[in-house]
Structure formats: C-alpha cells, structure tokens
Amino acid sequence: MKRVAYSVETKNKVIEMKIKECSTREIMDQLNIRSKTQVDNWWKWYRNGETHRFNQQIGKQYSYGKDKEELSSEEALKLKLKRLEIENDIFKKVQSIGKEVVPEIVVELVNELKNKYSVKLILETLNIPKSNYYRWKNKVSKIDEVEIKIKKICKDYKFTYGYRKVTALVNKAFKEAINHKKVQRIMQKYHLNCKVRMKKFKKPGSAYYRTSNLVNRNFRAEKPLQLLLTDITYLPFGKSMLYLSSIMDAYNGEIIAYKIGPHQNQKLVNDTLNQIEIPKDCVLHSDQGSVYTSYEYYKLCEEKGIIRSMSRKGTPADNAPIESFHSSLKCETFYLNSELNSSNDIVIDIVENYIKNYNKVRIQQKLGYLSPIEFRKLAA
C-alpha cells in the first residue's frame, strides 16, 4: 500500500476529535485516513507529550526526535509544559488519596489516568520501573479476586461467620492458601465482620446437685451417641410463646432430636427423648430444670439405660455447647432480621430450616471446618 503523508493540521484535528471521545472509525471516515495504526500513533505521541513528532517525515518514526537538539525552542517548551501538566495531575491524585505511593496506589493511579496519558509516561513521572508496575498489578488483581470471594461468602452466610470460618471457605476456593490475618483485615476494611452478640453475665448460684455433674465441662466424645446434651430455650417471636427442646450429640455438635411446643412441660422433654434410639450407658447432660429433675424423666432415662448428668444450678457454662447452639439460632435468624417475627407457623418453619442447615451445611472450626454431618460421615 502506498504511504500517504498527512498534514500537521489533520493530525491536530485527530487529537481534537479523540479528546471529544470520537471513535477511531468515525475519525478515519470523516478525515479520510486509511490506517487505524496512524491514528493510534498520533494519539500516543500526544499523550506522551511528543507532538513535535507530528512534523516528522514518513519512515522516520523511530529516529525522529531522539536528539533533543533537533527540537525548536517552541516545541521543547511545549514538551516541558506537557510533562509538568502530567506531573501536576498525577501528584494531585496522590494528594487527594492521602496515602504514600505504595503498589496498590500506583495501580489505582494508572487505572484512573491511563485514558489521558500513556502508562509509560505515568510510570516515568513516578520514577517506577515498568516491570515493578506489572508485578504489582498482578498482585492487586489477585487481592481484588480474594476480596470479591470474601464479600460473597459473608453475604451468602448472612454475616454470621467470623474470619476463621471465612478463611476456611476462601482456602477451599483458591489453590494458594490465604492467611487468616489477611482475611480479617479485608473483612474489617469492608465492615463484613460477624454480627457480635451481647455477652450475658450471670452470677452462679450455689452448687446444688440433683444428679452428679459427670461432664464437668469436658464435652469431648470419642464416638457418636456417647455424650448427649439437652436443653430448652424460649422462642418469643410468634403470636404466642413457643419452646424448643433439643438434644445435641457432643461428638460432632449435631442436633439429633428436637421438639417445638407451646408449653414448657414434661411431655415436651419426654417426646424429644423418645425420638431417638440411644445405646445403654450413654451420658445425657442437662441443667437442673424441673422437667429434668422430675420423676417421669428419671424413669424414662432409667428405662433407656441412660446415665444422667446435671449442671450446677445457675451455671449455663456447664452446658455450653447446646446453650451456644440456641444462642446462634436466635442471633442468626430472628435477631438478625426482626421482620422474621411473625406467625407461630413461620417461626417453626424458620427453626426447622435452621437446624437442617446447621447439621448439613454450617461449618464449625472445631470440626476442621466441616458441617456436623460431613464430620460424622468422614469419621465413619
């Protein structure tokens, strides 16, 4: 193809149209320019402050202007002013950000200014090697990818997971291990921290035993159905008060039986216990509530060959795992979203779905970041 020489006026017109954000195709059609490469080169020279090259002859693109003495005083002044303009623009950005020029800030600056100036010129102004920039850019891209994943995990689990559980899920998604401190910093940066529950303090009552405390806060079990924990909690979220009686297997934290009823009575507790087959000599730990110290409960446990154990009076920490479960249930559903408070049927449905999710999906740190059922199946 025969080369065509374009006037300086045509080249300046191209720059004016590019500044007005006209497309390259539109510029070529309007000014009758054959090559897209020429338009791109002129725009590149302008962004680099090399408009003196508009006067160069055809075939001199790579040698023209290398010797600064060839520039006229007017062209040299234009080039100097262009450089000063770029420096002023860049350092104003740095000042507005209010941070030192670290890798993340450099990448952010280049992204903001690369449509106005060339990447090469920005890096020269900042006195940063090109190789450093692209290494930093790749690192920042990785950080952005991790941040997006962390935000999604927190949102999917309704901000009920702390940084340790989030770290475990992030590491499942990425081959490269992400440090938990880094995950914590990102969660703090975007205010993604787990919803903190208020701590409750109760003065322990005097030690009064209806049955000995055989557990003594040692909630470890070597196999399923070796140690069970049971308790009742209030559900004041419907049209009337409801009560949840549940039994937890200490081996993996799984809720193996539960019953929801309108009364905190003996039938509620006994019906919960009758849902499951329990091997003889299994320890069943509870508090000293009247339903657990009753004759009916004592006889039922004796018939099933269950060994009873009871917390000290007024000391919920003696039955901590199931107390914690009941607290998590309320914090991660009703307390987190007050709009869930509705009819009794809706409350029951929410509790049942939470228990199903708790057993099958919700990971636990003490289980190696597995759900209770996953842990039980893996151990088997």
Rank of each mutant, 00 (worst) to 15 (best):
N213I: 01
N132H: 08
L169W: 03
M241P: 01
I256A: 07
P236Q: 01
A5P: 02
S311W: 08
Y258S: 03
E145M: 00
I153T: 00
S96I: 04
L71V: 03
K116H: 09
E323M: 07
K78I: 07
N32W: 14
Y234Q: 10
S72P: 01
A317C: 10
E339S: 12
Y369L: 07
P321V: 00
T10E: 15
Q95L: 09
N138M: 01
K20R: 09
I128M: 12
D345L: 06
S371G: 07
I178Q: 09
Y6C: 08
Q226M: 09
F174N: 01
M198G: 07
I86T: 08
V94R: 03
K165F: 12
M28G: 05
I350W: 06
K11I: 05
Y358T: 02
V170F: 05
N357P: 01
S35E: 14
G205Y: 14
A379I: 03
K80P: 11
Q264N: 13
S309K: 03
W136L: 00
K18P: 04
I348G: 02
N32A: 08
I90A: 05
E303N: 09
D67L: 06
C282M: 09
Q364D: 10
R3M: 08
S327A: 12
V140H: 02
K165I: 08
K195C: 07
L121H: 05
A380V: 04
K182W: 15
Y163P: 04
G368M: 07
K11A: 09
I306L: 13
M310H: 07
I186K: 01
K11G: 05
N132I: 01
I247L: 14
Y297H: 13
K259E: 15
V146A: 03
I256Q: 11
L192F: 11
V107I: 04
V291C: 14
N216K: 09
S290Q: 08
A257F: 13
I105Y: 08
L126D: 04
S118E: 08
K13S: 10
G65I: 03
S343D: 12
A177K: 14
E296S: 07
D271G: 00
K165Y: 13
R47H: 06
N111R: 06
I105S: 03
I15Q: 10
E112Q: 06
F54W: 15
Q288A: 05
I148E: 15
S343Q: 08
I15G: 06
E21I: 00
E339W: 11
C154M: 05
E374R: 00
H180L: 05
N88C: 07
E145D: 04
F237S: 02
N12E: 15
E74K: 12
S118T: 14
K189M: 08
K200N: 11
S286K: 02
A76S: 12
A207V: 12
F159K: 03
I86N: 01
A257S: 13
L273Y: 13
K152F: 14
Y335W: 15
I363R: 10
D144P: 01
I58D: 11
T315H: 15
Q364W: 10
K195Y: 15
P316A: 00
N12M: 12
T37Y: 14
S343M: 07
L109A: 00
E74C: 02
E108F: 12
Q56T: 00
K172E: 13
G314R: 07
G65A: 03
L273F: 14
Y208M: 04
S343P: 14
K172Y: 08
E339N: 10
F201E: 09
L71F: 13
R47F: 11
S246K: 00
Q365E: 15
N138V: 02
